[in-house]
Amino acid sequence: RRSLALFGYGPKTLARILRMRRALDLAHAGAPLAEVAARTGYADQAHLTRDVREFAGMPPTRLLAEAGG
């Protein structure tokens, strides 16, 4: 309940968002997406891409390009 009150979503969603942010930080630093996915606990690159699309509304390559990385 605290997670829902503080962040607007439950703890599992929060964990997914935090994992995605860690992955995007690694990708922004130049690591290949397949390696990023493996290092951050995704099953594969497609799993990472699905999460990024769900939360950011675009694939990670586009998100990184728009963020300047």
Rank of each mutant, 00 (worst) to 15 (best):
R1Y: 12
R1E: 15
R2G: 14
R2N: 15
S3L: 09
L4W: 09
A5Q: 11
L6F: 10
F7H: 12
F7K: 10
G8L: 03
G8W: 01
Y9E: 08
G10D: 07
G10E: 04
G10A: 07
P11H: 06
K12A: 05
K12F: 03
K12P: 05
T13Y: 00
L14R: 14
L14E: 14
I17V: 09
I17H: 01
L18D: 14
R21I: 12
R22A: 11
A23R: 00
A23S: 06
L24S: 03
D25S: 11
L26D: 08
L26I: 04
L26P: 07
A27S: 02
H28Q: 13
H28I: 08
H28M: 13
A29V: 03
A29Y: 03
A29L: 08
G30Q: 02
A31V: 11
P32N: 06
P32Q: 06
L33N: 04
A34F: 07
A34G: 13
E35V: 07
E35M: 08
V36K: 02
V36P: 00
A37L: 01
A37H: 02
A38I: 01
R39P: 05
R39C: 11
T40I: 02
G41L: 05
Y42F: 04
Y42Q: 01
D44F: 00
D44G: 06
D44S: 07
A46K: 12
H47I: 13
L48N: 01
T49Y: 11
T49P: 09
T49F: 09
R50T: 11
D51A: 13
D51F: 07
V52N: 01
V52H: 02
F55V: 09
F55H: 10
A56E: 03
G57K: 02
G57A: 05
M58Y: 11
M58S: 15
M58Q: 15
P59H: 14
P59C: 15
P60G: 04
T61P: 12
R62G: 08
L64H: 00
L64C: 06
A65E: 09
A65N: 09
A65V: 04
E66D: 08
E66K: 07
E66I: 06
E66C: 03
A67M: 09
A67D: 08
A67I: 05
G68Y: 00
G69W: 03
G69H: 09
G69A: 15
G69R: 09
